[in-house]
Design a protein around this nucleic acid. Structure first.
Lengths: 351, 351
DNA sequence: CCGAATAATTTGATCGATCAAAATGGATCG
DNA sequence: CGATCCATTTTGATCGATCAAATTATTCGG
C-alpha cells in the first residue's frame, strides 16, 4: 500500500502550515474561506485521512464505545440484543463514533475487560446491557469515573442518581397496554405467563398485566403461571391455563419463547384463534405471525448516545454528572399486532 | 480519573530506562530475568497499561479487525451471523485482538467504510461475510492490498487464488450426510425445499441432496420445491410435497425458516412424526426441537483468525500472499439430531 | 589477564496529529 | 500616521510509545 499522506504533505501541497490543515478539519470556521477551499482541494486530491491513532494520542479521546456481548443464550430472546448491537453500530457511525465489541462470562470478567480497554485509551465510554439487581458493574464504573450508560434501569438503587445514566423500556406499560387492548377487543379473562419473581424486568411486566387485567385477587392468582423461560414451559403453562374450569380467553407472555409455546399448545388443543401476545418482537414472532410487544430499539440507542455524548453529532466528551440535563430515559414499547394468534398453517394459501 | 502512569513513570520507579520497560512488555526474552522481575513489579504496583494509541502510532498496527454487520433481516437465519460475531469477539480476545463493527447497506457503502477505517489506521484487517457471485468487495480489497479473509468462498472465481483467503462450510456435504442418514433410517423418498437457483450456497446444498437422495431424474424434479426463504413458503412447499400421489417421507430444507414452516405444516396435516431437517441450527430450531445442520462456527472463526494472523497468538501482521501455507479452509458441518420432527406440543409432559 | 564477542541496557529520533502561544496582516480610530 | 485590536496563520512543544543505533556490562577463549 502506498504511504498515506500526512498533514504535512497536505500543508505543503496547499502552501499553508500543518496547523491550518488541522484547523480546516477540526475548526473550519476560524479559517478564511479562500484558504479553506484550497486546503480542502489538496486534501481531496491527495486522498488525505487523519491518522486516528495519532489524533487520539494527542486529544486523549478515542471516540470509541465499548460493548460487551453477553454469553450466547440458547433462547430466542437473545435476538433483542443483537438488534441493539446493530442499531448501535448504525447510529454510532452517524456520529463518527466507533464501536468495539468484546465478550465476558460474568460481571467481574467484564470489568477486567473494561479496565483494560479504558486504561489503554482504546475506548472512552461503555454501554452496559442487561442490568440486574445489585449489579456490581454500576458501582465500579461510577467509582472509577468511567463514562457509561446502561440499557436497563438500576434495579434496587435510586433511579435518579445522576452518576448513573440509563435508558430503559417500560415493560410494565407495554404489557398493560397489550392487556387493555385484549380486553377492549372482548377478552374477559386474560391470562399471564411470566418468570419467577426476583426478576426486575419480569416483575415489571407482570405488574402491567395486574394493573390492566381487571381481575380480582383470586383470579390474579388463578390466571397467572410462573415458569422459567422456554418454549416447552410456555406450552405447558398454556395447557394449564386452558384446562381451567373457566379457561382464559387470551394469554400475554413475558417473552416470545413462552408465547411461541403457548401459541402452539393452543393450536394443538384446537384453539388456533386464541389471542397470544409475546414480548420482544423477535424474528420468530414475525415469522410465525405472533403478536408481540416491541422494544423501540432505535429510540433506545438514540437516547443512549445522546446521554453519552450530548445532542450534537460531534465527538463531545461525556460529562459524568451535570445537574441540568435529565440522566435517564424510559421509553414506551408498542404492541405489534399480527394474526394475533398462531394461524393454522394447514389452512393457509400458498404456492 | 487519576493520570495514568507512562513508561517513563515505570522506568523511574524501577530504576531503568523506558526502553527496558518497553522490552519487558514486548520482548521479555532479551531482558535479564532479574531486571524483568523488578520492572514487572513496578508495572503491577503502578497499575501501568500501555497506551494503545501511542503504540499503534509507532508500530503502525492497530491489532483491530473490522467486521461489517449486514442489514437486519427479518428472517430467522440472521442468527448465524450473530453467533459468528460472538465467537469472533471471543477468539479475537484470546489473541489480544480487538473487533470493531460497523454497518453498511451495500457493498459500495461497505467499501467506503473499509477505506475510511483502513486509511485512518483504525483497523488492519477485515473479515467479509456472506460473499456472493461477482462480489465487488473481493477485487477491491485485493487491489488495494487490504488484508482480509472472507467467510464464504469466492463464488465464480478461482477457489485457489492465494490473494483471497477464505473459510467456508461445506453445505453440500452437510446436506448429503443428513439425507444419507435419513435414508439409512428407512426413508425412501426424501424431499428437498430450497432456494431459487442462482444462489451459491443454495445450489451447493441442493447438490448435496441430489447426490445422496438416490432418486432418479424424474423424482429429483418431483421431490424438490424451489421457493424463497420464509416460514410460510416452507409450509406451502411441505404441503405440496405431502400431497403428491406418493408423498415424500422426510424433508430436508435449505434453512431453518423453511424447515420450521415445513414442520408445522406436517403437524397440521396430521404427520407430526415426519422427519424434517433444517440448516443453521438457529435458536428456533433448538427451541422447537427441530433437527438442523450446524455450521461449526468455532472452527470457522479459528480458521479465519489463523489465516489472517498465523498460528501464533501474537499480533502478527497478516501476509497477503505466501505460496506455502494453504489460503483457505472448507469445514464440514454436522447434523444436530433432535426429536427429528416437530413434537406435538399437546402431548408433552409439563408443569 | 586481555581483547573479542555477546548480552543487556540506554539514548536520540520518530510516528502524525493537536495544543498553546507567538507572529503576521489588515482594518479601525483617535 | 502610529497605536490597538481582531482575524488569520505559523511555530514550538507534546501526547506515549517503539525503533535504530549507541553504549555499557558480562562472558569466554587463549
Amino acid at each position: 500500500m502506498a504511504k498515506m499522506p500526512t498533514v504535512d504533505d497536505v500543508a505543503e501541497a496547499a502552501q499553508v502550515s500543518r496547523q491550518t490543515v488541522s484547523n480546516v478539519i477540526n475548526s473550519p470556521s476560524i479559517v478564511r474561506e479562500q484558504t479553506r477551499a484550497r486546503v480542502q482541494e489538496a486534501i481531496d486530491r491527495l486522498g488525505y485521512r487523519p491518522h486516528a491513532s495519532a489524533r487520539r494520542l494527542r486529544t486523549r479521546q478515542s471516540s470509541t464505545i465499548g460493548l460487551r456481548l453477553d454469553p450466547l443464550r440458547d433462547g430466542i430472546s437473545g435476538a433483542v440484543l443483537d438488534r441493539f448491537v446493530h442499531k448501535l453500530a448504525e447510529q454510532a457511525d452517524e456520529r463518527d463514533l466507533r464501536v468495539m465489541i468484546f465478550t465476558a462470562n460474568d460481571a467481574d470478567d467484564e470489568l477486567a475487560h473494561i479496565r483494560r480497554l479504558r486504561d489503554g485509551s482504546d475506548i472512552d465510554a461503555f454501554i452496559l446491557i442487561a442490568t440486574f439487581h445489585g449489579d456490581p458493574r454500576i458501582a465500579w464504573l461510577i467509582e472509577h469515573d468511567v463514562p457509561f450508560v446502561s440499557f436497563g434501569r438500576p434495579w434496587g438503587s435510586s433511579l435518579e442518581d445522576p452518576r448513573h445514566r440509563w435508558v430503559d423500556v417500560d415493560g410494565r406499560a407495554g404489557v398493560r397496554d397489550a392487556t387493555a387492548q385484549l380486553r377492549a377487543s372482548g377478552c374477559s379473562r386474560v391470562g399471564y405467563i411470566g418468570w419467577p419473581s426476583p426478576s426486575g424486568t419480569g416483575d415489571e411486566r407482570r405488574a402491567g398485566w395486574v394493573e390492566a387485567s381487571g381481575l380480582d385477587t383470586d383470579d390474579l392468582v388463578t390466571y397467572q403461571v410462573v415458569t422459567e423461560d422456554g418454549v416447552d414451559q410456555g406450552a405447558a403453562s398454556a395447557r394449564h391455563l386452558l384446562s381451567l374450569r373457566e379457561p382464559c380467553d387470551a394469554i400475554v407472555c413475558a417473552s416470545d419463547s413462552l408465547a411461541l409455546g403457548a401459541s402452539m399448545a393452543a393450536t394443538a388443543l384446537g384453539q388456533p384463534d386464541l389471542p397470544v401476545v409475546g414480548f420482544d418482537n423477535t424474528p420468530v414472532a414475525s415469522a410465525i405471525g405472533l403478536s408481540s410487544i416491541d422494544q423501540p430499539l432505535d429510540e433506545v440507542v438514540a437516547a443512549t448516545l445522546t446521554l453519552l455524548f450530548g445532542d450534537t453529532g460531534d465527538t463531545v466528551r461525556p460529562n459524568p454528572d451535570s445537574n441540568e440535563q435529565p440522566t435517564n430515559r424510559l421509553l414506551v414499547p408498542r404492541l405489534v399486532e399480527r394474526r394475533s394468534t398462531h394461524r393454522a398453517f394447514g389452512e393457509t394459501t400458498g404456492a
